[in-house]
Structures are given as C-alpha cells and as structure tokens.
Design a protein around this nucleic acid. Sequence first.
RNA 1: UCCCCGGUGGCUCAAUGGUAGAGCGGGUGGCUGUUAACCACUAGGCUGGCGGUUCAAGUCCGUCCCGGGGAGCCA
Length: 430
Amino acid sequence: MEQVYIEDIASAEGKEVEIKGWLYNARSSGKLRFLQIRDGTGIIQAVVFKEDVSEEVFSMLGELTQETSIILRGTIHADMRAPGGYEMSAFNIEKVGDSPNYPITPKEHGVHFLLDRRHLWMRSAKQHAILRVRHEVVSAIRDFFNNRGFINLDAPIFTPAACEETSTLFETEYFNDQAYLTQSGQLYMEAGCMAFGKVYCFGPTFRAEKSKTRKHLTEFWMVEPEVAYMNLQGDMELAEDFICYIIERALENRRPELDKLERDISKLEAVKKPFPRITYDEAVKILQEKGSEIKYGDDLGAVEEEILGDYYHIPVMIHHWPAEVKAFYMKRDADKPELALGVDMIAPEGYGEIIGGGQREDDYDTLLASIKKHNLPEEAFDWYLDLRRYGSVPHAGFGLGLERTVGWITGVHHIRECIPLPRMMQRLKP
RNA sequence: UCCCCGGUGGCUCAAUGGUAGAGCGGGUGGCUGUUAACCACUAGGCUGGCGGUUCAAGUCCGUCCCGGGGAGCCA
C-alpha cells in the first residue's frame, strides 16, 4: 500500500493509503476511537469504528499512549468536522514502538521542563512551526546571495586569536597549543572578497558572554557577506534588499506556520523599502526627545534599541557612529574622522540589533595604527594587513544573526526556541 | 559581575503563622463524532539544603544551592 505524507493528503482523497507516524492525541467514545497522528509533515485525525477492525486491534487502540509509533491503513476522505479538512477511516493499525509515560502532555509546561526535554519538545506543533520558519529563512539567505553571484566561502571554526578585542572567546586545546572558537568570520571574508569579489559565510558562531537575556545564545548562526569595491551606501542597500527578501519568502511559503504562531502578519507586510536611515547623531536626538538619558558618544543600550524600534515599526539603520564605540577595522569618515562608517540595523518589537556591519578600513597605515591603538597583537594580524598590502580596495559587509531574525519573524519571545538545540550560559544539554 | 523574581505530587499552580489542595497527566469503569473531549472513582507529598525565631513554619529571619528575567557586551 502506498505511503502518503500528511502534507500531501489532499492528493490521496478517496484512496486507500498508509500513514506512518506517531500518536499525537487520542480520544475515545465507546465504540468509536479518534486518533490524531503526526508524521512530521502534519497532523491528521483517524477514526476507527469498533465494527471495522478486529477485537484485538480495537482494544489495543484503547491502550495506546502519546507518541507511540504506529502505521495506519485506511481511506482518506474530506470531512468538515476534521481539523485539517481531511480524515482517515482506518481499517488496520499496526503498532511499531511503545511510548510509556511520555513526559510532554497536551497541557501547560514550564520552559525549563521543556528545554530539558528539547529532543522531545521538537515534536510539538508550535516548535515545529518555528523550526520550519527557520528552515525557510536559511533557504532564503542562501538563495539571496547565490542568486546575486556571491560565492559561499565558509570561515573556520577554530581560530588562533580574537577577531575583535571585546567579546569573550571560548578557549579549547589544539594539540599542544591553544585555539578559540570563532566569534566572526568577517576577517576571513575580507580575504575572500579580494579573491572572489562577492562572498558570504554562514555557520555557527560562539560567544562566551555571560548574557542571560531573551536575545542571547552562546552558540548561534550568523551569515556574513562581504563585497569588494562596495562602500557604506552599497552595504546598506544590500542589507535592506536582503531583509526584504527574507520576509517575502517567509510570507510566501510559511504562512500556515506564522498563523499557527499567531504572528501579526501585517507587521511583517509593512516591511518594505526604503528602511529609515538615520545617523547616530539623529538617533541620539530622537532618543533624547523620547526621554532617554543617552549622552552623545554612548553606545545604544537595550532600552534605546526598543525606543527606536517602536518609533519606526520597521527595521531602522543607524550609521556614522562615534569611532570609539566601534571595532578597530571600521573605516573612518573622510570628512569627520571621529565617525566610523558602521551601520547597525535594529528590528522592531524589541528584537534588537539583527545586523551589524559597515565599510572596512582599507589603508595599510591607518589600519596598522588602529591595531596598535587597540593593543592588539600585531603579528596575529599579519595576514590581515597583507590584504592592504596587495591591491587593497574599499570593501564592506555585515553580519546577520539568524536566531534573532527568526525570533522577530515568528514573534517568539525568546530566541532559544529559534534553534533546534539551544546552547546558553546555563544549558549544554540535551 | 550586578539588580529583581522564584523553588509545594509526574506537570502547571493554590494555600492570613494554625489538619498541604485543585486542574491536567497516570490507573479503573462509562459513552457511536471527539477537537487541550466529557462523566465517575482511584493512587500519588521529608513544601530545594542547612540553621534560627515561635506553643506552632510551605509561610517569618539568616545562609547556601539551583533556576528564571533584566543590565553590561553583542548578532
């Protein structure tokens, strides 16, 4: 008998087919049993009348527990009363594997309890929806860059030293030496763009920051494009097109999942070009008008990001930052050297910074001076300085945090639900 | 590292300083259209650890452990 996946069930109407899956929920009404089956692609209800099956099968159904793996054979037909519009009248049920005392019941559970059982929690409908949106965003990210002629040039996970001076790195033993887990592939992408023109890397990133907030993971996924001969303006246009494309794809292909998550679709539909672009100076003025106590020269905190997000309702790009708050590799503005050509994109609804990037310093002497000023080990950046020795050109890029982006699109409160197995300060299992 | 909140059956939570409870889940029985089904019965507890105040502590005080939220930093 032909196996059918529940997402394709409409094509099986009127046919006798096989569904292979797991018991999601069961109800019983005397001589009638209702079994809700999930197979990873959806959920369908099967109805079993006592007279349609053998006595052994019918009494076995009464003992089935949640998440027992079963194979159902029956006829598919449309039914107004069924949640998905289709229902199976089953005439044969085969139990594959028992599932005694499944811990995640159809009632409320705390996040801690669920995270301890994340390997099982992934089976739940809401988690399914979120991770399917994540999959769509991942596909959209790759398609966007691939369709624009970018080369995927992934960066190493093991790195010999800090890419930037501030963030905390995870240390690991590397034979008889010390290595660190990457916190950014950007410096390597700068090398890549001088070789291939347009490149991106997309992989896990590690930060040993002691951050316990809904926006932080110790291991998260970041995509980092880098383009030769591109300036800050081009960088902002790229970032804007990129975000618009991701949102379009999510709306186009994952509408049922977003509905399941009760996401306010209109807020995503409002995300259209052009995004507001304001300088750091303008941002500070707006924030001060809105009651923030920010002083010129301060970096934006979580409160400031939220104020700006609420003010614009769509992502806002802030550029031309005081150089002091930005990294050593940022290029300075030619007219106002105290400003760096960096850009941050702040997502609305409190999801914070989803993109950070800018134009990089391409002058050898200026970059070397900056490395020295930041007390960075010059010898570690030998190869990086080579990029300014041999045919240096203006170039720019950015990094986008995948889980924050998925969090924003799905409207999930905490980004730990936006990655299959989250790694946080207090969590390394499962 | 700092600030705030919490820890009570398997789960989610109640309980003026005075006999520890409910819903769900589990078990047993009933029901031919259930949608987190419903109805009845039933089992299940050293209230995070240690110390203190009190006739009496889940409740008050001290301390430690664990967890959550936020700040800083960042995507």
